[in-house]
Amino acid sequence: MAEPAVTTRPDVTDVPPAPTPSPRRRRPALVRHWREYLAISPFYVLFTAFGLVPLVYAVQLSTISWDGLSDPVFVGLDQFRRVLTGGEFSVALVNTVLIFLMGQVPVVIGALVAAVLLSRPGLRGAGIYQTLFFLPQVTSVVAIAVVFQSLFSNSYGIVNRLLGMVGVEPVPWLESAWGVKVVIALMIIWQTTGYFMVIFLAGLAAIDPALHESATLDGAGAVRRFFHITLPMLRPTIIFVMVTGTISGFQLFTQPQVLLNGGTGPSDSGLTMMFLQVRYLGSSGSGTQVLPDLGYAAAIGWAIFVVLVVVAALNAQILRRSRRS
């Protein structure tokens, strides 16, 4: 690594002008720029090995039935048929969508309201509020699940005891199908609202204050200005939040898995798509005993991939339509 100026521009500096440039002189790009290619190569190598190859490998795996130990059996397209008609995947899909809606909609609305309130000029303690709302983001889902499990436990949970003080019968939060979904949604709300609030704050800071000023002079109140200036101007941020929220929301696994102690909850109400895949992987984390079937799990993985791509396409469609209007 001695002469950098020479190595970066060999054909300019160190080669004396020759009457007939031989093809050998201009070395191939890969040789001339080997340092650059080497420096950026880790991403491409790792993405191929652990991103693309697994997708292809999953296709092969999904044509077999295999518990991981005995000889795999070739079953053709049966695993995909099982995904589509077996009922389990649709249960998991519906659970995922329901929990996503119950969690994500309040998150977006709450984060937006908090950001609007916190962006008022001269608000005292804005930094403290922001820090407090963001703090759950840095705690691990396992820690959150431990705390929420105790908050919502049946007889000794503080939530039920507080409800009892005002005369409400204890709610079996973690033992009813809806209760489980509500608690998971609350965990998501508590953990991610502050994160999206910060993104909305960045979006709000980009809105030209002159717009608000002229609207105020025209007699528009705070509510009208919110719906006619703030919301339309925030559209790119809102779409961004929805895209990132759906991609992570549809991969929900840790919250139900930890909250339900590795089980899937009453009538499988906490069984999400990723959870279903892990369950058939037959690993220690899968809790409830099912016969492991790596082929079926691989087919489930592909189904999740397709669902996510469809959701992303829908998001793009919404984005395009809202741009036109």
Binding site: F50, L55, Y57, Q251, A297, W302, L308
Partner: peptide, 17 residues
Amino acid sequence: VTMALPTGVAIVPNFQI
């Protein structure tokens, strides 16, 4: 483009690898 591909959902083949 890879940032938009949810490749992380295929956990079985990764586990096998």
